[in-house]
């Protein structure tokens, strides 16, 4: 008998393919990556941008686009089961909330991996001729995965509490914006104690700083990036605790809660 979470995972993948939803995201990402890579490579040829800077900019764009798409998709996958009234039948079957969440998580994480695979040719094209390609690909995958995991946990926790895709999406996008906007500020704007503290705990800031460390400063080992990886791992743990709390609230409230 297949694991039940596998069934939920494969259902989500099939839905992404049958309804074209998943493919549309990949096409949108591909268009954005093509456009960005073309602009960056043109600038490089004009000697306006060195290759390390180019890779750093592209990696930031890939990760922000991927995080945005995963955030939008993950905001729907759980909440729509409640909105379309399919959750009741699903939970009447011997399906635990743990298997349900795990299946949905794997589906959203698969979308991130698919987006990464779409981005690979652009990353290889822009890093051609430099020794940075393995580190570039490796760190985008590692940092992106940690960021995506943390965001999916947070979004799923909200979905279980709100049971509404609109509310989940609005709150999640606001959080993504709140993390991304300060990360795009130049370092000269982050000199005050409060700004540096926020910067140290902001997961997006840590992703960008680690990429800067790897691609611009050539600090490519994990130990050289631990100061950035550690806050990302903490972010994942905090959001996992939030998700665990939401699951316990869900169990207490029941599949259909008080109206």
């Amino acid at each position: 008998m297949p694991s039940i979470f596998n069934l939920i995972w494969s259902k989500e993948i099939r839905e992404g393919l049958y309804t074209w939803k998943g493919l549309v995201w990949l096409v949108i990402a591909s268009i954005l990556f093509s456009f960005t890579s073309y602009l960056l490579l043109t600038n490089k040829e004009l000697s306006l941008l060195d290759q390390a800077e180019l890779l750093w900019l592209l990696s930031k764009i890939i990760l922000v686009v991927a995080l945005l798409i995963v955030t939008i998709d993950a905001s729907m996958v759980i909440a729509t089961e409640f909105e379309k009234e399919t959750a009741e039948s699903l939970f009447l079957a011997p399906l635990s909330i743990r298997d349900f969440i795990l299946g949905k998580f794997l589906a959203s994480f698969t979308l991130w991996l698919a987006l990464f695979i779409v981005a690979v040719p652009y990353m290889l094209a822009t890093s051609a001729g430099s020794h940075l390609a393995p580190a570039f690909l490796g760190y985008v995958l590692l940092l992106g995965s940690l960021g995506v995991i943390g965001f999916i946990f947070f979004i799923f926790a909200l979905s279980l509490l709100y049971r509404s895709s609109k509310s989940t999406l609005t709150t999640s996008l606001m959080l993504l914006l709140a993390f991304t906007a300060p990360a795009l500020f130049s370092s000269t704007l982050k000199t005050a104690t409060v700004a540096t503290t926020i910067s140290k705990i902001n997961p997006i800031d840590n992703i960008f700083s680690s990429l800067d460390n790897v691609l611009v400063d050539f600090q490519t080992t994990l130990s050289q990036n631990w100061q950035f990886l550690f806050p990302l791992i903490v972010f994942c743990l905090v959001t996992f605790v939030f998700l665990s709390f939401s699951i316990s609230v869900f169990r207490r409230q029941g599949i259909i809660r008080n109206e």
Partner: peptide, 28 residues
Amino acid sequence: IGVLPESRGFYDWLTGAEYLDFFARLYG
């Protein structure tokens, strides 16, 4: 138990046979 609930949401993108097959697998 088997239940035909008041709320009747379906996965509209599946065929009737695929839908039942999905639930059959959920029950093992």
